[in-house]
Amino acid sequence: MAGVAETATPTVLQRIASMPLRDPFAFVGLSIYVIFALIALLADVLAPMPPLEILFTSTGKLAANLPPSLDYPFGTTNLGRDIYAQLIHGTRSALAVGLSAAIVVSSVGTVVGLVAGYFGGRIDSLLMRIADMALSLPFLPFVIVLTGFLGASTSNIVLAVALLLWPNSARVIRSQVLTVRERTYVEAARVTGASSWRILFVHVAPNILPLSFVYAAIAIGWAIITEASVSFLGFGDSESVSWGYMLQDAFSSQALSRGQYAWFVPPGICIILIVVAGFFISRGYEEVFMPRLRGR
């Protein structure tokens, strides 16, 4: 029994690790992640200017609404702030929100899905009722009310996103557990008297790990979009410069009517890139691990 598990575990892990090399979409997705991660790490090097620093021209006037130039690749805001610096530093808060939400969502979803699917019965129906409830809350309004009243902080946004997103992954993982549970090696482990928790985490969990990855990748995108939306509506964390903050700033400073595309287009593109990267990666994992979930 142990032999089966030990041969099964590394192959699944190896396949998870090697998947991006086999699926070109996933490779592109992963590359986008890596690039943004590097930008976030090297933000201070890439953009030494603090993002909220107010700049002045050589003649001592406020450097407001400057068009893109060599010094300021995306120009400046109406308050004379460097848009490029904001974009670079915004990557940090985007990744912080995205990754923390992804970790919470996929770990809660995985544990709930595993427990509900494996033990079944009352625990299962209780957990699934809670999931139903969370899914019947309107997503963005809930996040707004929560952050609006509890305080506009990044952690509250992550909390709100996590509260509403875990059921999606929990449900799918649960149904996957239901099928894995019936496989022969799990049956064999049960017959040889392995404990439930051992079976669950040693034999079942590795098989649903790819799904956890899929939902983590999706959650990253969702969290970043949500953070941007909430910031745009004015409930964002006022301490940090995020892409959502930039868009809100541009919108409320009439950048649209002035046609300052260099101000509000790049943050949107960055968000699209990161979310699409998540789509690509999840698509890749689904293709490799769950071909039946997808159309041919």
Binding site: A228, S229, G268, I271, I272, V275, F279
Partner: peptide, 8 residues
């Protein structure tokens, strides 16, 4: 288009 924030 699915990945873009609606408001953007």
């Amino acid at each position: 288009t699915r990945a873009a924030p609606e408001f953007w």
